[in-house]
Nucleic acid binder design. Structure first.
Lengths: 263, 263
DNA sequence: CAAAGTTAGTTTATGCCGTAAGGAGTTGCA
DNA sequence: TGCAACTCCTTACGGCATAAACTAACTTTG
């Protein structure tokens, strides 16, 4: 019997994720002033508003009027805290998309919701996906997508691949917009200011741009990079636009796969 | 006339990216023992083999037999170094995909190459996409994809959205596999060991798994999560698999869009 | 009721990080 | 010869996660 390194820690972190420990019975020592839930909530608030880079044990502790070390009574390490944040945030996703209007509408609503969720919590995209956290809400999210996709009649293996493709796309599309939103605050420049300054430098540094990049120059001329709506920052418009179009492309592709499989 | 914050730095970083500074003329002071290229090369080597987290100015300096501070003579800051690494690495992508066999084959080869590239340089995926680096090789990469896609006959706006969708998907799919590759080294556990330990804990912590997640349980039973090839780690197989299937789905979706547009 | 044991939270310290500041040594040009 | 420009170093600051040792609060046991 092999005992894997860190298995004891794994047990503790799974217990935290699935909340299987009972803490109602009286225990010696001072009453805890904090709780895991409170710490996770606070950490999520920091990551939402100031980004993952600003999330430190000190910062969380400070918001709660404690030192960084105080948190270690509740949570084994920062990485466990991030795992808890990850699963905790996923709880806000809805679990029952309507299948009345068909799988296409349901997938669309699942994807839109997930996209908005990631844009709202951009730090989620920085948590590694391999070796998933395996918390309850992550399973709920996957189960929900699979439940919808099963309506297509595709076999289980194809379903897994389709779901993976959708997830990759939604995450990727959300990341672009999330980064676009953070950029102005991070650099102190609006999209327009930034682009104005950069494009001036670009013609300075690459005066032969049009010859080197003819297709891009053509697209620029066709107005492919023109803002439609002046009230929304350009990069955000482009991101939303790409997501909407990409989703249709994917759904059409899935329908094609159903046709081939005789679904 | 507004002068934007950081524009002076922006000029220097653009000059570094596009290599428009000449250093051949004699200058006072000791001969530089290092060079921007050498530093960028070394930094890329570290990020490739040990991950972005292991990339520090001290680490780069040490490999070159210098202190961290020595690098600041060549490169203004770590974030500029990362920008240089980003564009430098992109240079290895090929610029002339064959269009003889049609756009589908060309897009497939572009996507495969990009996917392999990102898996080889996973740290690339951690460099923000909004406010792009705007180096020469980044433009080459986009130009090449657009050149291929233009064969579809779609309008410029649609092209932009299709290209964005493809990029999101390729990046997302590559990220999954890149993380899967790093996981065993990071945790000291193979996929199988890890899964074995975790699934034991999972039944402990969620004995009612089958009722809570019926679709996932069904898929498991159908063998959707079964490894096909014992010589390749499971997560990597799944990632490759998803990428291949997703690409076909996307291409079919693009064809559908061409049909609608009468292309 | 007192001693013992457990727990929450603190302070302190270690070894990382990016990088500012200032100094030492090297080189080309006046 | 001297100055200015240049490379590279040491030192230092404030940040980070977290280990270790401590205090103080509380329950349980004798």
């Amino acid at each position: 019997m092999v005992v894997f390194a860190g298995q004891g820690d794994a047990r503790r972190s799974m217990a935290l994720l699935w909340r299987t420990t009972r803490s109602d019975q009286a225990r010696p020592g001072p009453k805890p002033a904090l709780s895991v839930d409170l710490i996770v909530d606070t950490a999520v608030a920091i990551a939402d508003s100031e980004g993952m880079a600003a999330l430190s044990m000190r910062a969380v502790g400070e918001r709660l009027g404690r030192t960084a070390m105080a948190l270690y009574t509740y949570v084994p390490s920062k990485s466990e805290l991030v795992d808890l944040m990850y699963d905790w945030a996923l709880a806000e996703l809805s679990t029952r998309h309507d299948l009345e209007a068909g799988w296409r509408a349901a997938v669309t609503s699942w994807a839109r919701e997930a996209w908005e969720f990631y844009v709202r919590h951009p730090w989620m995209l920085q948590v590694s996906q391999a070796r998933p956290v395996l918390g309850p809400n992550e399973y709920v999210m996957i189960e929900e997508l699979m439940r919808i996709l099963r309506e297509t009649g595709l076999d289980a293996g194809t379903l897994r691949r389709v779901a993976g493709t959708l997830s990759c796309f939604v995450r990727g599309a959300a990341q672009t917009v999330a980064e676009a939103r953070q950029a102005p605050a991070a650099t102190g420049l609006s999209d327009e200011e930034w682009w104005y300054a950069r494009s001036a430098l670009l013609t300075e540094v690459a005066p032969d741009f049009a010859e080197r990049f003819p297709t891009l120059t053509w697209m620029e001329g066709e107005g492919a990079y023109q803002a439609q709506d002046d009230t929304v920052p350009y990069l955000e418009q482009e991101g939303r636009d790409t997501f909407a179009a990409g989703l249709v492309i994917l759904l059409d592709g899935i329908e094609a796969a159903m046709g081939e499989a005789g679904g």
